[in-house]
Design a binder for these strands. Structure first.
Length: 569
RNA sequence: GACUCGAUAGCUCAGCUGGUAGAGCAUAACACUUUUAAUGUUAGGGUCCUGGGUUCGAGCCCCAGUCGAGUCACCA
């Protein structure tokens, strides 16, 4: 069902064609200026704007008799158009103004205009339109958001569901939304140029993987028909990037979409973007320095040279160097408990004393992780490196040079959340095999996120991988920080949503499908709004009701026979 | 998964004890030659998310469901 406004727009479309205006022309419309160029350049050099051509979407109309104003929005901003009847219609025929502009042009239509820039009595730089053409007619009304002189916004399009489901509408009417995505793109560009300057190589690795490795998470499963094998959407790309280090690259990085089949909320989307980088002959200490420099550079690039960023009610300073705290010290500081040397049983007790729920499937690593996640994580607002994680939590990470129970790992915590994760990569193939086997044991214990054993990865390590440092940064989270958004949905163009369910209204075809004649179908539909409503009744009753309807409405149709009606059931 | 809140016109939202469904913007018509949330007059526009129940009568009350938001849990 079309709404009244949609019908009117379709009628306007037909009328335009009647008048010889093509609403969807094929040819290019060449543009000489953007809205931004006009607004910025006119004051200093008015002569350069005697004749301009620009294109964009009509966002408002204000008509006053023979004169009218519209806002035209292009990719750079909005500029006001001034339509004057006698400027547009040189001769006697005033159709172009009176009908085409005033009646047939709607908010949302794309127009191309040619005209002259001037300043109105109110002092607004505007384009006096001499000619205009349709570039694309809009058939659905846009939400109209208005802003008054004080910057107060009226009738904002704010419903998150509609904004995410119809991001295109969100982008049209909520200009600040665009900035978030521009920043996101700048973040990635800035990182990429840091890496490229160092000579590291941007690479691509498989998204469809026979063994989903490199992280602890549940994967999505799919199936390859020709090979008749299951394939998994990657949960990480770590093992592939390390194979490339084995292959002899000095530094490789990838901006990777990963997929995890887990819950969704305002910080988790089933697909998300991670930047991972691996650099040969480095360790995690070098990587800490590299990470803080990288982030300081990125933040300055997108934040006008400033290192301070406002996130909610916090101000976070990304100026290097960042604080460094070992995980053991962090737990000691926030719980008073020293977990050094504790076994699984002792850790379980420690959890109980802290009021943390545990279960039998949890190994040492999970228990420690629980304590940290529950009691410590939220305290690190300013960028802080948490270092030296227990071995069991980090099956791909090299043992700590000073303590074999720990690993050379750090996570960067910002605003109480993990932003980055890095290791001195484990390159001892025998140790790596043992770690995988421990994971297998965990998996048998019921941990459905424990890692699979990737034999090809082990084979690669057996050929020899140089020592290397690896780093992963959550691009979505970083973007959330740098655009001051508290939900991941705001930094993804198209966040995952439950499918839209359209109420399925019965059509005439549904009635025809039952074998009802074409002549009768539309009338049956009036009596029984759904086929189901009819089929629940007895054929005899339906037969009588319909013939009664025929008589009452004086339908020029032969009366129904009971056999006809029965055949529908 | 638990709890709380929400779903009414194209958009943002009202809706009295349960008694003919409202406003602003948008739309249509008329007026108006520099407006800017343009203005003035008039008009049209609704399966009140879905399905049941209570009732003479449900947008409102009750039950179930769908979708969304928030909080928590889960999830590196």
């Amino acid at each position: 069902m079309l709404s009244e406004q949609e019908i009117q727009r379709r009628e306007a479309l037909n009328r335009l064609r009647q008048l010889g205006y093509e609403p969807y022309p094929a040819s290019e419309f060449s543009v000489t200026h953007t809205a931004e160029e006009i607004l910025n350049g006119f004051e200093t050099n008015p002569d350069a704007f005697q004749s301009v051509r620009l294109a964009g979407r009509i966002m408002s109309k204000r008509i006053m008799g023979k004169a009218a104003f519209s806002d035209l929005k292009d990719h750079t901003g909005r500029v006001q158009l001034y339509f004057n009847r006698d400027e547009i219609c040189a001769g006697e025929d005033k159709t172009a103004y009176n009908e085409v502009y005033k009646k047939l042009t709607d908010i949302g239509d794309f127009l191309g205009v040619q005209g002259e820039v001037f300043k109105t009595r109110m002092g607004e730089i505007s384009v006096l339109v001499k000619e205009f053409v349709f570039l694309s007619k809009s058939l659905r009304p846009l939400p109209v958001v208005k802003t008054d002189a004080d910057g107060k916004v009226y009738d904002a399009f704010t419903d998150p569901e509609q904004r995410y489901r119809q991001r295109y509408v969100d982008l049209i009417v909520n200009p600040e939304v665009k900035n978030t995505f521009v920043t996101r793109s700048q973040i990635i560009n800035s990182m990429r140029s840091v890496f490229n300057e160092k000579g590291y190589l941007e690479v691509e690795t498989p998204i469809l993987q026979p063994i989903p490795g490199g992280a602890a998470a549940r994967p999505f499963i799919t199936h390859h028909n020709a090979l008749d094998i299951p394939l998994y959407l990657r949960i990480a790309n770590e093992l592939y990037l390390k194979r490339l280090i084995v292959g002899g690259f000095d530094g490789v990085y990838e901006f990777a979409k990963d997929f995890r089949n887990e819950g969704m909320d305002r910080t988790h989307n089933p697909e998300f973007t991670v930047m991972e980088i691996y650099v040969a002959y480095k360790d995690y200490r070098w990587m800490m320095g590299f990470t803080e420099q990288l982030l300081e550079t990125v933040v300055k690039d997108v934040n006008k040279g400033e290192t301070k960023v406002t996130v909610g009610d916090q101000v976070i300073d990304f100026k290097a160097p960042f604080k460094r705290v070992t995980m053991t010290d962090a737990i000691k500081e926030h719980t008073g408990i020293d977990i050094t040397g504790m076994n699984e049983e002792q850790l379980r007790k420690a959890c109980q004393s802290l009021g943390i729920e545990t279960d039998e499937t949890m190994g040492k690593a999970k228990l420690i992780d629980e304590i940290f996640g529950e009691k410590c994580e939220k305290n690190y607002i300013q960028p802080t490196f948490i270092t030296d994680y227990p071995k069991e939590m980090s099956p791909l990470c090299k043992r700590h040079r000073d303590n074999p129970d720990l690993t050379e790992r750090f996570e960067l915590m910002v605003n109480g959340k993990e932003l980055a994760n890095a290791y001195s990569e484990l390159n001892d193939p025998i140790d790596q095999r043992e770690r995988f086997e421990e994971q297998l044991a965990l998996s048998e214990k019921g941990d459905d996120e424990a890692m699979f054993i990737d034999h090809d990865f082990l084979r690669a390590l057996e050929y020899g991988m140089p020592p290397a440092a690896g780093l992963g940064i959550g691009i979505d989270r970083l973007t959330m920080f740098l655009t001051n958004n508290s939900s991941i949905q705001e930094v993804l163009f198209f966040p995952q949503m439950r499918p839209e369910k359209k109420p399925v209204l019965p059509t005439v075809d549904d009635y025809l499908a039952l074998g009802i004649s074409e002549a009768w179908a539309e009338h049956v539909m009036k009596v029984y709004p759904t086929p189901k409503a009819m089929l629940e009744l007895k054929p005899t009753q339906v037969h009588q009701t319909l013939n009664g309807f025929r008589k009452k409405q004086k339908l020029d149709l032969p009366a129904l026979q009971l056999e006809d009606v029965s055949s529908w059931f």
